[in-house]
Design a protein around this nucleic acid. Structure first.
Length: 434
RNA sequence: UCCUCGGUAGCUCAAUGGUAGAGCGUCCGGCUGUUAACCGGAUGGUUGCAGGUUCGAGUCCUGCCCGGGGAGCCA
């Protein structure tokens, strides 16, 4: 008996198959019992009728099976316009019960509070909507690997335990590291990617990042995933070009590979179809002028909050680069603009529809003396950065890279309101369970 | 950390300071095509915790705990 998956059920039309899954819902109408099965790849309706195989007692038993019972169900695949979900249904002639919950399944077919769902995240993952979001996350991550590998980038894994901060120490998760004092959970793999790109040319990492910030917004997690490409001899311009092609590739891949998931999420795909290079660009100074015209009380030198980012992105129909920020509000390693040393060769990529910053990138300083000066300005402990300075002592060259936040990108593509739904087990300031 | 809203049945929510309720779920029964099925019956409570005001507190006051929304913070 072939083991069929629901996502490919159309292959089996007219054939007898076995579906291995769980009871997601059921209905009965006396002599017909409808079992809604899910197997992780989709949902399908199975019908059990009163006949020579199933007695009235059998139907009574199936009608009372608790939700989330694990089942092996055998039957014939039939096209059925009345069937929900996939247009096919399983005409059942055999059911084997693997396990039956003793307690009532907590998640019901109705609205629940956010608190309740987060408390039951381990079960919430089984719902149709969460399944769709995490399948799209899977497609996004696979798309990142596919694109970067094709572009000649090598995957290099960064350390998670690190000796020092990338930027300051206020937002680090700290732990004791044997006799060597404090260690910290990584905020970014970037500095290690800079070392790796001098060895491999083009590299990237896809790793978790940890922030002990007490941020409590729909765009923040304390543990999130970033892809960080870094390329030797890449200029600011090369960097932007890579970013817009990567983001476009991911979006187009999801559109072509995940139409069912986008439909489940009721995502309007029109704005996503427009996501093709080149992306519009606006300099920091132009953005300030734009915001002032729109009535925001911002002055040159201020950083942007979420509302400002959204106001800028509303002017464009696809993701927009904001570039050349003031040096004073950006990280220590960013290369100054040769035409104006108060600015740096950096960019933020702002997603449309109010989803905010999904990329931060820049060309990096490669001059030893300038980098040493910046470390001093930022009061960073030089000893911890000696290895990083070595990269400027031996074979220093222009290089650029960026970090793309996986959850923010998935949230935007899925059109979900809060990024806690885009990671299987979100870590937030007031939640570490489950 | 600040502002703001909330915590009542398993879940989602009602309840002028005056007998704690409904829908859903669950259990029992009915129904040969249901679409969060439907119909009938039954079941369900330390009103987040501690104290106070009052003849009387789910309701008012104080403190604490937990959570939602937002801000700040944020390669």
């Amino acid at each position: 008996m072939p083991w069929a998956t629901i996502e490919n059920i159309d292959w089996w039309e007219g054939k007898d198959v076995e579906i291995r899954g769980w009871l997601a819902n059921r209905r009965s109408s006396g002599k017909v019992v409808f079992l809604i099965l899910r197997d992780g790849t989709g949902f399908i309706q199975a019908t059990v009728a009163l006949n020579e195989v199933f007695s009235k007692e059998d139907l009574k038993f199936l009608e009372r099976l608790p939700f989330e019972s694990a089942l092996l169900v055998r039957g014939r695949v039939r096209r059925e316009p009345r069937a929900p979900f996939c247009g096919y249904e399983l005409e059942v002639w055999g059911v084997r019960v693997i396990s039956v919950p003793r307690e009532e399944y907590p998640i019901q077919k109705k609205e629940h509070s956010v608190e309740f769902l987060m408390e039951h995240r381990h079960l919430w993952l089984r719902s149709r909507r969460q399944n769709a979001i995490l399948r799209i996350r899977n497609a996004v991550i696979m798309g990142i690997h596919e694109f970067l590998q094709k572009e000649g980038f090598t995957l290099i894994d960064p350390p998670i335990l690190t000796p020092a901060a990338c930027e300051g120490t206020t937002t680090l998760f700290e732990l004791e590291y044997f006799d060597l004092g404090k260690a910290y959970l990584s905020q970014s793999g970037q500095l290690y990617m800079e070392a790796a790109c001098m060895a491999f040319g083009r590299v990237y990492c896809l790793a978790p990042a940890f922030r002990a910030e007490k941020s409590k917004t729909r765009r923040h997690l304390t543990e999130f995933w970033m892809v960080e490409p870094e390329a030797a001899f890449f200029t600011f311009e090369d960097n932007l070009h890579l970013q817009e092609r990567l983001v476009s590739f991911i979006v187009q891949k999801v559109l072509s590979e995940c139409p069912r998931e986008l439909e489940i999420l009721e995502r309007d795909t029109k704005p996503l179809e427009r996501v093709t290079p080149p992306f519009p660009r606006i300099s920091y100074s132009e953005a300030i002028e734009l915001l002032q015209r729109k009535g925001f009380p911002v002055r040159w030198g201020d950083d942007f909050g979420g509302d400002e980012e959204t106001a800028v992105s509303e002017e464009f129909d696809r993701p927009v680069f904001i570039h050349h920020y003031p040096r004073a509000i950006k990280a220590f390693y960013m290369q100054p603009d040769p035409e104006n040393p108060d600015l740096v060769l950096n960019d933020d990529l702002i997603a449309p529809e109010g989803y905010g910053e999904i990329i931060g990138g820049s060309e990096r300083i490669y001059d030893l003396a300038l980098l040493e000066e910046r470390l001093r300005e930022h009061n960073l402990p030089r000893e911890a950065f000696e290895w990083y300075l070595d990269l400027r002592r031996f074979g220093a060259c222009p290089h650029s890279g960026f970090g793309l936040g996986i959850e923010r990108t998935v949230a935007w593509i899925c059109g979900v309101h809060h990024i806690r739904e885009t990671i299987p087990f979100p870590r937030q300031i007031y939640r570490i369970y489950p």
